[in-house]
């Protein structure tokens, strides 16, 4: 090539193309996004985080939590469950329908299944299979519903009910999706760990609540001070090696309180049109261990 101008023009068009694709288009597509509604409840989603949690996001940014934590739950697909909610009055018909849906079901087993409804009939099947099962059961006089369930390794780990979607981050600045999972994904941590006190103790000394944790502590977000009078209502309930000396207490600074408020505000648990799931779905073979509150010795999900 002889001409600098040609190289320059070539580079210009190549970069302009990529800029249009990955900067301009997302700005028009998701940068202009507005709040949506949950499905089927129809509530507005998302709502802005409370002010304290917004300050907490800044603490999260300033201390580089995103170097160890992602906030992007991945879902490999969707499966369907069929729930039998009501046996109806036509027992022989329903038993026959059940046996049609579940070929290996014996008659006594089918009768047993009809007690104490609702119960799952099929789990983790495709939409066609589930729909045909629901049809068979309803024509026999029973009532059955279809449950949608999002699946994938992240969800099996209990990191959420569905994948992360652009709406989850609509009001955040900065949006820190993270790149590495040195620690667990936090997109839904407020659901599995809603206790602010737990978060504060965890931030002060992670190993005090999660045995074997390799997360660094953040003692500088707290103040260790002499107890005066009855002591502070905010003082952390620490025990063992992590407790301060007698006569001292550990109280969170405002940054720590804001950060904990942010962490409990991280809830990606709204079913949306673009990422549906049935609230209360009990899950197929890979049942998410939601709300399992990790305690000392118990580890995290």
């Amino acid at each position: 090539m002889r001409h600098g101008a040609l190289v320059y023009l070539g580079a210009f068009f190549a970069l302009a193309l990529s800029w249009t694709g990955f900067v301009l288009t997302p700005q028009m597509q998701v940068g202009q996004m507005v709040a949506t509604n949950t499905v089927p409840a129809g509530a507005r989603y998302p709502v802005a985080r409370p002010g304290l949690a917004q300050q907490g996001l800044q603490v999260y940014r300033a201390n580089g939590c995103a170097y160890c934590h992602s906030q992007q739950v991945w879902q490999q697909g969707t499966v369907f469950d069929v729930m039998l909610t009501d046996g109806g009055t036509n027992q022989p018909g329903v038993v026959a329908a059940l046996q049609a849906v579940m070929p290996r079901l014996s008659r006594p087993e089918a009768l047993q299944l009809l007690e104490g409804l609702p119960k799952p009939v099929l789990r983790g099947v495709s939409r066609e299979e589930a729909e045909s099962a629901v049809k068979k059961l309803t024509t026999s006089g029973a009532k059955a519903t279809l449950w949608i369930e999002a699946v994938g390794p992240d969800l099996a780990r209990g990191w959420g009910k569905r994948r992360s979607v652009p709406e989850d981050f609509l009001y955040d600045y900065p949006v820190l999706l993270g790149a590495q999972r040195v620690g667990p994904d936090l997109a839904d941590v407020g659901v599995r760990q809603p206790d602010v006190g737990w978060h504060l103790r965890h931030l002060y000394a992670p190993a005090s609540v999660v045995t074997g944790s390799v997360m660094p502590g953040y003692p500088y977000l707290f103040e260790k001070r002499r107890v005066v009078g009855a002591g502070s209502a905010d003082a952390l309930a620490l025990s063992g090696d992590h407790a301060p000396e007698v006569g001292y207490e550990v109280v969170p600074k405002p940054e720590a309180k804001a950060l904990a408020a942010y962490l409990v505000s991280l809830r990606a648990d709204a079913p949306l049109f673009t990422a549906p799931f049935s609230v209360g779905a009990s899950g197929g073979p890979a049942a998410p261990a939601t709300n399992a509150a990790p305690t000392a010795g118990g580890g995290v999900p």
Binding site: F22, V23, V30, G31, F169, D172
Partner: peptide, 23 residues
Amino acid sequence: STANLCLLVFPVRGVAQAAINYW
């Protein structure tokens, strides 16, 4: 310049930030 302008000076909304960061 694009990244700093769109992320720090006149920040875009939501995950468009992440898109620019990845880009």
